[in-house]
């Protein structure tokens, strides 16, 4: 029973994603709505992502410091924190925060539009609601999450620099030099590329759950909730796949 509904849901979501690729790149293009969604999804998520990135960098540094000190490896903290944030913590934490904030908001917004017949009204008004609501949001989440992740990485690394200086002294130049001397494109590129997939997952799941919402206001709550749960889970699954793929390609 559970397996059947899981397979049904997976199939329906895949069909929904297929429709995105079929309809998304054919005119008419909803450019104004896409830019508006980029503003909503990207710009308005900045404070949340910034704070999270800052705390992530600071905590990682403060937590790792005593252990590193035991081994006399304090000078390795920038390298370790830099690699951790850029390869894994930045993308995954930003992705999860993004899923919580944007996934739920898309699920709730489209769900409420569905139950109040606004999506039908759009169709009657000569607008393809799938293009206007779904394609614009999925594109916006796919493109904005990598940008937000890079910003979170930068803020996190700066917080790490501040964390190191709480109990020691290092210059920003040395800190940056330590990080960059150990980083390769093989560390940065896969990490950035996987965030496009995370963003796509958050957008498509949020839109699917909201677009197919029913059962009135109860359905709106369920849409928002399951959008967060499923997209967060999918982020972890995609991350696991990304690790395997980068390993096969020799980037690990």
């Amino acid at each position: 029973m559970f397996e059947n509904s899981l397979l049904d849901e997976t199939g329906a979501t895949a069909q929904f994603a297929g429709r995105f690729f079929r309809e998304g790149f054919r005119p008419r293009y909803e450019v104004a709505e896409f830019l508006h969604q980029c503003y909503v999804v990207g710009y308005q998520s900045l404070p949340m992502v910034g704070i999270t990135g800052f705390i992530m960098g600071m905590v990682l540094t403060l937590q790792s410091r005593p252990t590193m000190a035991q081994f006399g490896a304090e000078s390795w903290i920038p390298t370790m924190v830099g690699l951790t944030i850029i390869r894994e913590m930045g993308p995954i934490i930003t992705g999860l925060i993004f899923a919580g904030k944007i996934g739920s908001s898309i699920g709730a917004e489209l769900g409420s539009m569905r139950v109040t017949e606004q999506i039908d009204a759009m169709e009657v008004s000569g607008t393809n609601p799938f293009k206007y609501l779904v394609v614009t949001r999925v594109l916006a989440t796919t493109l904005m999450l990598p940008v937000l992740t890079i910003l979170a990485d930068v803020i996190g690394l700066y917080a790490s620099y501040l964390g190191i200086n709480l109990k020691g002294v290092t210059t920003l130049a040395l800190f940056v030099n330590n990080i960059f001397s150990s980083l390769t494109f093989g560390d940065v590129l896969p990490a950035v590329i996987k965030t496009f997939f995370f963003g796509f997952a958050v957008g498509i799941i949020g839109c699917y759950k909201g677009y197919h919402s029913n059962k009135g206001t109860e359905g709106v709550g369920q849409a928002a909730n399951s959008a967060v749960v499923v997209s967060s889970l999918l982020i972890f699954v995609l991350d696991l796949l990304a690790v395997q793929i980068t390993g096969l390609l020799g980037f690990n």
Binding site: Q118, A121, S125, T127
Partner: peptide, 22 residues
């Protein structure tokens, strides 16, 4: 529509202009 289906995120003017522009 029975539920009016006004777009919550738009002003009254934008609601009226939506079908007009489309």
């Amino acid at each position: 529509f029975q539920s009016n289906a006004l777009y919550d995120s738009m002003t009254v003017r934008e609601n009226l202009l939506f079908p007009l522009r489309r």
